[in-house]
Design a protein around this nucleic acid. Sequence first.
DNA 1: AATGAATGAGTGTTCATTCAT
DNA 2: AATGAATGAACACTCATTCAT
Lengths: 206, 206, 206, 206
Amino acid sequence: MNTNQTPKKKPGRPKITTENNITREQILKTAAHLFMAYGYEKVSMEQVAEASDVTKASVYYYFKNKATLFTVSVSSMFQRITKQTEKLLQNSKGLKHRLYEVTLDHLKRPHIDFETLLQEATSSLTEGHIHEIREAEKAIHEALENVFKQAANSGEIVVASPRLLAHTFSTVTMIRNKKELITELGGPEKTAQALVDLFWVGISPN
Amino acid sequence: MNTNQTPKKKPGRPKITTENNITREQILKTAAHLFMAYGYEKVSMEQVAEASDVTKASVYYYFKNKATLFTVSVSSMFQRITKQTEKLLQNSKGLKHRLYEVTLDHLKRPHIDFETLLQEATSSLTEGHIHEIREAEKAIHEALENVFKQAANSGEIVVASPRLLAHTFSTVTMIRNKKELITELGGPEKTAQALVDLFWVGISPN
Amino acid sequence: MNTNQTPKKKPGRPKITTENNITREQILKTAAHLFMAYGYEKVSMEQVAEASDVTKASVYYYFKNKATLFTVSVSSMFQRITKQTEKLLQNSKGLKHRLYEVTLDHLKRPHIDFETLLQEATSSLTEGHIHEIREAEKAIHEALENVFKQAANSGEIVVASPRLLAHTFSTVTMIRNKKELITELGGPEKTAQALVDLFWVGISPN
Amino acid sequence: MNTNQTPKKKPGRPKITTENNITREQILKTAAHLFMAYGYEKVSMEQVAEASDVTKASVYYYFKNKATLFTVSVSSMFQRITKQTEKLLQNSKGLKHRLYEVTLDHLKRPHIDFETLLQEATSSLTEGHIHEIREAEKAIHEALENVFKQAANSGEIVVASPRLLAHTFSTVTMIRNKKELITELGGPEKTAQALVDLFWVGISPN
DNA sequence: AATGAATGAGTGTTCATTCAT
DNA sequence: AATGAATGAACACTCATTCAT
């Protein structure tokens, strides 16, 4: 995969993307971690730099300001999560089981919520930044939405608004922050199961 | 003999009682608004002071630091919300309708989420502060939980864990932040209706 | 001494100095203690008030500002020390023994040095304040100086400048701050003895 | 292979070596002057910055907080004084004359006393800081102590505790603050002479 | 005589950002 | 590509002081 590792040599001087990417990627990953863990304001560029083992000035070499760094790092993380979610949604088991797996996956992430993060950062970001992040976020919801639509079409579920369902479902995983509750319910697996059950049959005694 | 011991007449200017301490109340209300709107870090004591039409030092006269101001103001707001929620839950209409009203009430609040807020502020608060807020928050969930329990006992609904249901229900109202979605669904009333329906019957085709 | 204690009644309504003095005196004493222990800047009016069990405003009722409070409280303390020093100097034992007792007395005081204190406070005090304190301080030196003069006249000691001797002697007791050294020398008594010996015979071998 | 491991060429702007780091040195010197003149609390970081012709933030770039700046600047000054004192003590003249020169040198310094300063700053410093300063201070005393020891061995003087003598001698120069007295005695030279004489022969008539 | 309320001016410290190297 | 130096603007918090009660 790495341009340096593959023996097939391109003509001309290769772009020095390799080393760049190592540093840049390192910063991005570190930043995402930190932002997720502590929020936007609480994380300083200095912290990001230190944790990335470079200097503050280096961070500015790659990202023109904090808002940009935030936007890029969070968007990338969204993309990774989207991929993971899609993978979980695309196996052949029944929808209910797939939902359970997605729920469990989200419950186990140790991070702050995206909504949280975004709300907090909003006043520091430009319209463009917010848009970029929202787009990245949308991908996750769309993945869920599509699955719900298909399931609705095939009669596997009945749902008024697949979109609302997707959002609701996604939002609910914020419950992961309430550790006490999860413990009380017997751990993440049980909690995930209970949540999916709740969504599945509702509360009406019919 | 000593004036201190005998409560004859207290020397000095009499203290303004908490209820009609207009300045303090003003600060509290303003602070709650600001924290809800912009988060913990983004709101400066100066801002609170200015918006309350007093000086920064006055804010410090009433609240010994930012964490305390935050705790007190947020807790007070929780109490107000709890009261309102309880009122809505205690009328005589069917549970579904009551849930609809609570949902609608929450959807209409223009604020950041408590969870969000708390997560962000956490690292600046002491254990005691967090505890205080959590206690205030718990009241809301308990109000919901009790209603669910009663409804379960009377056979009005079927529910595995009233607690999880309460939390989930409460969390879901965070969807209020997604204004686009609400618009798309036809406004808060329709959205509230759709959410309650979702909870009510679930998604299984049974 | 106290007007209230002596049965001899003055005609007319007595000045309400009694209660005043109790509070005022309390503040003065507390302030002196605090200033001696922590220096001028480090002690806040709030601290003085709290430690005196009154409010800040009360302190201002008796003393128009911090500089004044400092001046009065420190001067009073000087007077107390002067009295004590004079008492020790006026008994009938030999001069050397009396010096030993004064030295020991000073070594045992747990306070910051006056010089220290004054130097630090200087920039916050007016000329008048400084003068007042210096006058109070002078009394101590004069007590010593007079004793030295008498001893010189009676041939008990030989001294070029009694004044320099008084200052030097007084300054030397600042060694009390070097607790390690005092311990090493075997405690305050031994240290006092060694110091007096040093002054007594000097270091010349003759 | 890795540029980081092989010391081929360090990336980025080369660091200015400590010796010719003019800014840092400037700050240190200014800070020492100010602290000596006005004490710890009275000197603000802003003042130091202004007097050093840099911004406050620059001061923080070099010293992580006020306590550290204080410690470093005072320690450096101690080192300079130690050097000077050692130089004066190591010439070939008689001990009495050398003591005179050291005394005169100290009397002429226009500063606050170290003890004073340290006492005042103590509550703001960490154990480590205090230790560092004390170590630097010790050097001066040791220089004196060693000279006294040698003189005692060679029979030039008779002294019970060279250490106490060193401390006492050093403490006595605090008299420099009493400008009136020095004037009265006919200037620093005469005062220095009188002090050394006092130490030399003591006050006993024998 | 004594106090609660309120404030202006400062203090130490942090941080995103820029710039020359 | 990466860094050390430097800064402006902000921030939480403190404190001496005033004033009406």
